[in-house]
């Protein structure tokens, strides 16, 4: 399966980006959070999205999964333009079916894991593939179990989320995202809600995913991960991309004064 993905990735890199946005704006009332973002993520890329609190990182990621509706701009997922129509002064989803379908292609991993508490871990993993993607239950089950093994939770399939540690819950949430066979994974501060000693196990899973060529967009405050794992850094400031480039370029210093200040706050 891995090699399939990598092949697909290679075949598509030149052609269609997994995610592409043009002129993305988002405001809440009069508060403008995103002020025109142009961005593309190609297959196999690992993009770390950095920025200080309130710079709009979460909002950006949530727009890509359409948990927030952009106020203006175009969004293409796997080359398919997401239909939006204007009602009054705001945009709304034109075709809910299309959005529901595309959402499974850009799977989200949340800061607070957000596993469904009334379902076992295995049921959590099988929910969307079976009920949204309408795949065959037996196959999904096998895949889900395999995915649990990958994140090291094979012996926790029948447990309920409340019975797991934070790190285990987040790994299960990552597995839940993977079983949908998404083209890209969106992570919103996946380790921020974890006790320090549990951060490592989640980061390890993410490193493994990166090394197998998954497309990942990661909002994080883990500078180590951003520097060592990602192929590209996007630095958001006050709703715009203030700097972007490879980790080597940006962390080398001198590209963006603001970015250097931002990093020095972490090291200092």
């Amino acid at each position: 399966m891995t090699s399939d993905l990598q092949q697909a990735a290679r075949a598509n890199t030149a052609a269609v980006p997994a995610i592409s946005v043009d002129g993305l704006h988002k405001h809440f009332g009069t508060h403008e959070v995103l002020k025109g973002i142009d961005f593309q993520a190609h297959d196999g890329e690992v993009v770390s999205i950095l920025g200080s609190s309130g710079s709009g990182k979460s909002t950006f990621l949530r727009c890509l999964n359409l948990l927030e509706m952009p106020s203006a701009g175009r969004l293409r997922i796997l080359g398919e333009e997401v239909g939006m129509k204007k009602v009054g002064s705001s945009l709304v989803i034109a075709d809910q079916r299309q959005v529901d379908r595309l959402r499974t292609q850009v799977a989200m991993v949340f800061q607070n894991f957000c596993l469904w508490h009334h379902m076992t871990v295995l049921e959590n993993l099988m929910e969307a593939p079976v009920h949204v993607q309408r795949r065959v239950r037996g196959e999904v089950r096998d895949e889900a179990l395999a995915m649990l093994e990958r994140v090291g939770l094979q012996d926790r399939a029948g447990f309920y989320p409340a019975q797991l540690s934070g790190g285990q819950q987040q790994r299960a949430a990552i597995a839940r995202a993977l079983v949908m066979r998404p083209r890209a994974l969106l992570f919103d501060e996946p380790t921020s809600a974890l006790d320090p000693e549990l951060v490592g196990e989640v980061l390890k899973v993410m490193r493994d995913l990166a090394s197998e060529g998954r497309t990942m967009l990661v909002v994080t405050h883990e500078m180590g991960f951003a520097r060592d794992v990602s192929s590209r850094i996007v630095f958001l400031e006050q709703g715009t991309i203030a700097a972007t480039g490879s980790p080597r370029q940006l962390f080398g210093g001198g590209v963006s004064e603001r970015f250097d200040q931002f990093v020095s706050r972490f090291n200092g």
């Binding site: 999964n65 948990l67 959005v99 529901d100 379908r101 595309l102 959402r103 499974t104 799977a107 989200m108 949340f110 607070n112 894991f113 957000c114 596993l115 469904w116 508490h117 929910e127 969307a128 009920h131 949204v132 993607q133 949430a173 839940r176 949908m180």
Partner: peptide
């Protein structure tokens, strides 16, 4: 959050 997780899975 759990409801959002559902929406994000295309429910």
């Amino acid at each position: 959050g759990q409801i959002e997780a559902g929406r994000s899975c295309g429910m």
